[in-house]
Design a protein around this nucleic acid. Structure first.
Lengths: 309, 309
DNA sequence: CAAAATCCATATGCACAGGATATGGATTGC
DNA sequence: GCAATCCATATCCTGTGCATATGGATTTTG
């Protein structure tokens, strides 16, 4: 049994005439008659009753017509899904995302754009720190990750830098240095005597490293306060007056009672990067589309430039 | 796109090797490679990644594998249903049935046998008198009918006589002639003065005609009492003492308070036939199977002979 | 490290399936 | 009774799909 024969059968059944069906199929009548006969012989049953004017479906023929339509439809559907998958319009995408990444407008913005452009791709988010991201990428648990670590490509992975943003100081609101957000940039040295709350824990080289490095460059060894695993708890500790923290500028969108932000002097302030990381040679078209879109957005997006001041 | 190609694809996908798949398909490797390539070109996408040892499905290939299996399964199913229909193992059967027919054991017996032999045929019953049966057969509302009329084939229909059974008299239990069922057969003349309740109404030449004809043959014109449309009301009237009725012997299975049955003298008693009626040249295999089974059962069934005494 | 092995791709030849043309036969309609 | 309609059969031919032979790439083995 052959799809061509199935299509021939459907055409004949729908037209009720072999001649007319042949016309519709762009062929001559005799070979079509032959094919119909061949099907009947193969199935060892009659599909049509030959009448003086045209042909008429038998019961079996009627059943086959229904079924054949379903099969052909199913096949079209199959090819559609396959093509969509090949184009990366359909499938799954597992995205690892650093805890501070969602606060930068770029991330939700590009995610929204992607979901709109590829509505049939089901996107799953998984919050993870940079070290976990690398592991989960290698273990195929996630396909791409937004991370804040300035990773130099580990084996088998590719890192794309999407943007850099300045970091700002988060101070207790009661702190003497906590002024209006519009106040003059702060010199890092002014914080030399403060406890520094390190954000991100020891899970990976990320924001904490950048903060410390900046302090060293500014000429002092910061007093280390508590470590907080997440951004919320970090700001909580700051709010409680347990110390100060350096956080990406985009975190300022998170207004917390008792926490004030201050910009730092451009010359000495650390920067936080946002990197996109993925498996090298990942053949997934979904991943390719995603990465393309994210990188293009990062390049084009005016917002970034404003943010860099 | 071709079913053959689809099967080739599934084989290669399942084996992970073109060479091995070719073996399984009973062909050589080069043409199989060609066909796979042809599919990929037609769909304009990659289904496999060629590795050093064998081939590996791409995402699109994985999707197509799933879908292709479904399509092939669907096709097998389609052919199965078609074959079943052609064999008359599947479909619908609308059976008209005379009101008195179900009381003869033959009818439920053969219906049970049919449903057992052809469980996928959905049988629909429709009680109807002989005239309606003819109409509904011609109008294709029913496919076959059990009727009690001795119809001579109307145009386009075929009648098969399944069995004949004697008729018996149904008397009010209080009637002087109402004796033990085992009493001697009654002479029809003995009922000459009774009111005859005609069963079946005027809807068709059936039992009522046979009853009257028998009376005429026995030498008297029966006094006509009420007409009753159905067997239950007929026996109700008898029970109420409004007259007597002649009914098929098999009706005796219907024991009604106040109604006694008596056999009639073999020489003069009327007989009730049970006929199977259907459209001539009905192409339905289901009907053919049904008629074959019913007729065979009617011929073979010992029960009938006993009933004929 | 070279040689064998494995497996896919390409090249070429051939056989057959499927389509075109021509024609016959049956039924219907005027 | 003749024309028209439509399916079936016969014959020929083209193109497709398979087989055989061979090349190329990578892995395994001695």
């Amino acid at each position: 049994m052959d799809l061509r024969q199935l299509r021939y059968f459907v055409a004949v059944a729908e037209e009720g005439h072999i001649t007319r069906a042949a016309e519709r199929l762009g062929m001559q009548q005799p070979p079509l008659s032959q094919q119909i006969k061949a099907i009947e012989q193969e199935l060892d049953l009659q599909l049509f009753r030959r009448k003086a004017r045209g042909v008429e479906l038998t019961d079996a023929g009627r059943v086959l017509l229904d079924q054949a339509r379903a099969v052909l439809e199913r096949l079209d559907h199959a090819l559609l899904l396959t093509r969509r998958t090949a184009r990366g319009e359909q499938g799954r995408l597992s995205v690892g995302i650093a805890p501070t990444a969602p606060f930068h407008p770029f991330v939700p913005q590009v995610m929204r754009a992607f979901r709109q452009a590829y509505p049939l791709v089901s996107v799953i988010f998984d919050e993870c720190l940079s070290r976990q991201a690398v592991e989960q990428l290698c273990g195929e648990q996630i396909d791409v990750a937004f991370v804040r670590a300035p990773i130099t490509d580990p084996q088998g992975l590719v890192v794309h830098t999407l943007l850099e943003e300045p970091m700002v100081a988060a101070l207790p609101a009661s702190h003497e240095l906590a002024g209006d957000p519009r106040s003059e940039p702060l010199a890092l040295r002014a914080l030399a005597e403060e406890s520094f709350i390190l954000f991100g824990g020891s899970a990976g080289p990320g924001i904490a490293d950048a903060s410390l490095a900046a302090c060293y460059r500014a000429g002092f060894s910061p007093r280390l306060g508590q470590r907080a695993p997440r951004i919320a708890s970090t700001l909580g500790l700051v709010s409680a007056g347990l110390g100060v923290a350096l956080v990406p500028a985009s975190i300022q969108r998170l207004q917390v009672d008792g926490v004030a932000y201050r910009r730092l002097l451009p010359r000495e302030r650390p920067t936080a990067v946002l990197n996109l990381i993925l498996r090298q040679n990942d053949p997934s078209a979904v991943v390719r589309n995603f990465v393309d879109m994210v990188r293009r957005a990062a390049r084009d997006d005016r917002w970034i430039k404003e943010q860099l001041e």
